[in-house]
Nucleic acid binder design. Structure first.
Lengths: 207, 207
DNA sequence: AGATGTGAATGGGTTCACAGCA
DNA sequence: TGCTGTGAACCCATTCACATCT
């Protein structure tokens, strides 16, 4: 079974849309309807849902609730997963506010900064620690996923400690390519690259 | 010539790394060295550079300065481009701080919010307006690229005004799929989807 | 009639492998 | 010798197209 990044991302998107539909009281949906909402082809939706092992019916399409459950079985970890966030600037705070409470199985549970004014506080229900305690705390809490929202000058150093502490996945907002072992999954999301790309296509597609 | 999203993103990354090398006084670089720093294959680097029309030499590899210039010719707009940012929460402020001053041809030049306390101010050298003035100002300043960092409840409405005002590219941080015409380039970067994906691969790659 | 599920065809991005060059 | 440049091969994601089902 294919678990490419791009497919996983689509499936996560399907779920978010399905949850919205479920809350609106929708019971069933056809592949082309879900496809429209996600801006992919209906064949793509059918193929993806086939891969996760859920079957609809030609008459009624897919049952929203069952499909959500199948996606959860395919995607979600068995138990709740804690996430560490390093860097409590505007970006770090934004991420906590956006994220916590939005995902059933995932939660940011520990915050880190090097600024003494930002440690030993509670932000959005979450405790902040000095970055010197990073390794100890992620080990103690068995944290496998981390967000880096520190300036790029500090990012590699933070990554080294995270890897040392057993982290397996990193969401990196600093505009550098982190040097980590191949076994660590890294998703780079720096805003400079992204905005340059958007600007490029904004101009290029229209000349 | 191929200008796929993924290639453009790589080329933008090459440039950022080359600029760093240039500042460090490096004159030349081989494809495999650049490849290592970007975590792609050397064949990929050579293919990408071939496509932008820059040639190196087998003896000395690529000249850093010339290559930066060639990339600029391939990627950059002819003149400076202004960018609008809508939504002045923590995320919006983080984006301004991260971005402005980092890109030669791009600059966030106008900020928008609906909260009266946040308008008519100057943040990082940039004026903030009420969102009611959004359309007028992007038209007057010929702005083609925008960032949406408002709550998801407001995002579609903002997108509609942006499209109405002639925007061609949108960087969307709200966790919804925007409904806009096909001719508009949209890059979705919501943190919930991203973090769910990172967590998935953190767990899945290691069991 | 109008969906789903899926083998097969398609398309396009990446890598291979090697000629050419300093 | 060891690199670049590149046609060709490869690989994998997407789409096609249609048998199947209700």
């Amino acid at each position: 079974m294919n678990r490419s990044e791009i497919k996983i991302e689509r499936i996560i998107t399907y779920r978010r849309i399905l949850l919205k539909l479920y809350n609106d009281g929708e019971k069933n949906i056809f592949s082309y309807q879900l496809a429209n909402k996600c801006q992919v082809s209906s064949a793509q939706v059918r193929r993806d849902l086939m891969d996760i092992g859920y079957s609809g019916s030609p008459a009624n399409g897919y049952e929203v609730q069952c499909l959500i459950k199948s996606i959860a079985e395919f995607i979600d970890p068995d138990k709740k997963q804690g996430i560490a966030l390093v860097g409590l600037g505007n970006l770090g705070r934004a991420i906590i506010d956006y994220f916590n409470g939005q995902s059933l199985k995932l939660e940011i549970v520990a915050l880190f900064d090097k600024n003494p004014n930002k440690i030993n506080r509670v932000i959005a229900g979450c405790h902040s620690y000095h970055i010197n305690d990073l390794k100890e705390i992620i080990i103690k809490n068995n944290i496998k996923t981390a967000v880096i929202s520190v300036p790029s000058t500090d990012a590699q150093q933070v990554a080294d400690v995270l890897v040392d502490g057993g982290i397996k996945g990193i969401l990196n907002y600093a505009p550098i390519i982190l040097n980590v072992p191949d076994s660590i999954y890294v998703q780079n999301r720096d805003m400079i690259t992204t905005l340059e790309k958007v600007s490029y296509f904004a101009n290029y597609n229209n000349k």
